[in-house]
Amino acid sequence: MAAVGKAFSRALGAGVVTPVVASLTAIAVELVAMGDLPDPVATHWGPQGPNGFAPAWTVPLMTALVAGVLPLVLGVSALRAVARGERGFTLRLLPAVAAGLSVFLGTLLAGMLVLQRGLESADHAGGVGPVMLVALPAGAVVGIVAWLAQSREIGVAAPAAAVEPLTLQPGERAVWLGRSEMSPWAFAFIVAATLAAWAGAVLMWVGGDAAAAGIVTAVAVLLTVLSFTFTVFRVRVDAAGLTVTSGAGLVRMRVPAADIASVTVIEVHGLAQFGGYGIRQIPGATAIVTRAGRAVEVTRRSGRRFVVTVDDAPTAAAVLAAAGEAAHAAQD
């Protein structure tokens, strides 16, 4: 329990406390500098000096978003898994990235305003080189320290639940048909993001330049294809083995019954074991992770594992184990 407490407090420090302190400090510095700034201020620099300008008040807002909210999202997403007792590379990396990113962006944005104090016009703003020289190492050092401070434990996999093959009468056939789906909230988020990308694309075509519109449209198309392909999978267990087909049928994966060495039910938390959600390839395993929770895990004769998250994993696993046994019996 002490180890869990320590890992959690370190992750909390790196992934939540650091971004909060860094972004609030940066915003405080920006607000102090605010009275003494040209309007608008320079916010973007090219090779010939400043080339992008915005009202000064947008900078603290930007700071809150990119140096505060964004790193916090990264940190909190890892923290929940750490609290459950999970460990792993990604869970060590996310809080460290959150800490480094918030310090880097906070320093950069605040330094950018401090440099412009007392200027008549933002056109006279010098280069951001000196700010970069401070912000980049500061972010890197904080990120590395946060990485080193994180728990170095390797994830302890929950013991796999053994599966009793379904008992079938001679001549009886059993199949299991189901789906591997995202949680409704995650799905709603993806649908919203896709719609937003399309709305952005339409706005760009109407008012923006063609190049940007082309890029946003491409992103929207990509998001649409991805959400059709990777948010829902049809899972089928029958005498032939396990078949997983993506929503639009673009991807199909199979484990033939004769290739099954063992079947178990495991608890999957995408981040710790597979580094994320979707179709995941890690050494020794392929996984289809649409949500956290129970999954069927098949070990092939080669030792490679195939994992798919499904509702009612115990039933699916029992049918699959029976199909594997039947295939082996037929071979002998």
């Binding site: 079938l168 009468q169 001679p170 009886e172 056939r173 059993a174 299991w176 048909l177 039933t315």
Partner: peptide
């Protein structure tokens, strides 16, 4: 969904 059938029945 689990489906079991026995064609000999």
């Amino acid at each position: 969904m689990l489906l079991r059938i026995d064609p000999t029945s």
